[in-house]
Amino acid sequence: MRGKNNSTIRYFLVRLIELLITLLLVSFMTFAAFSIIPGDAASVILGPDATPAQVENLRQELGLDKPLYVQYFSWLLGAFTGNLGKSAAFGVSVSELIAQRLPVTLGMSVIALIMVVVISYPTALISARRPGRLADQICSVLGHVLFAIPPFVLSLVMILLTSSLFGLVTVGRYTKPSENFFSFVGCLLLPSFCIALPKIAMTFKFLRSTMIEQNASDHVRTAKSHGLSDLMIEFRHVLPNSNVSAITVISLVLSDILGGSLIVEQVFNLPGLGRLLLTGIARRDFPLLSGMILYLALITVLLYFLADILTAIADPRIRIK
């Protein structure tokens, strides 16, 4: 018993150390990428008309004249305390800009994730119960086709359908979450669905094959021969064992969902991180871009970590190994 506990703790510790190293590497790569490219924040803020002396002054003020490793550590330290410097284009602090836009992107990602879980599980269960039957065939074909449609194309089709068939205006409608939370969620439903649909197809496919495997396994046959009801078998034996692969797949689709929401926001004209990113790109606002990349990568890394921990909880074999 004690040995088992030790190995569990060790597993989590190793994962934690790996997480920290990854975070450090991610931050270093972000910083390095923005240091080697020509042009810096000072010249962007001052514009093309600035004299070299002005640029030099501002560089000193922003700390850009210090050696790179000093800059890196002060940037990293700032990132931990939520201070990523000032955006060159907006003149506001980067963290403030991100905080303003985060609700839309995060909201869409969360809603899309919920949709993935809520829709792919039941459909996979139904499909896997009788593979090859009509319900399974319909789900599988739909899954294959939906998997291949880019989210932004799906969004365009959805906009076309809702506007021409139902006369609904879905583009550019947005309510702040602080004003009315439910109408905020309402605005995000259709875009989230467009991001979620291909990922639902992907998760469905993986879940279905795992469940078919489970259904054919010995312990399910034993349970059946003991006279357990089908429903009992599904919930007590098949589902828990499918969770392991489900968590892996879902953690894989997470960063796609996040990236997808950056694009789909653009189609639906929602004020999320995607538009901020494009503004940053258009105005070559490096502090803003590096800050955004760091935060989004941070979120992804933490989600992967969470998925790993969840997998270990769902499957004890991984911990002991």
């Binding site: 990113l277 790109i281 258009a282 955004m292 990349i293 990568a297 890394v301």
Partner: peptide
């Protein structure tokens, strides 16, 4: 693999967008 995994931590589209925008 640590290096490769760290690259995979960035949402891919974000990385590609910024790389293209900068270059």
């Amino acid at each position: 693999m640590l290096l490769m995994n760290s690259v995979m931590c960035f949402p891919g589209i974000l990385l590609a967008l910024v790389a293209v925008a900068v270059a």
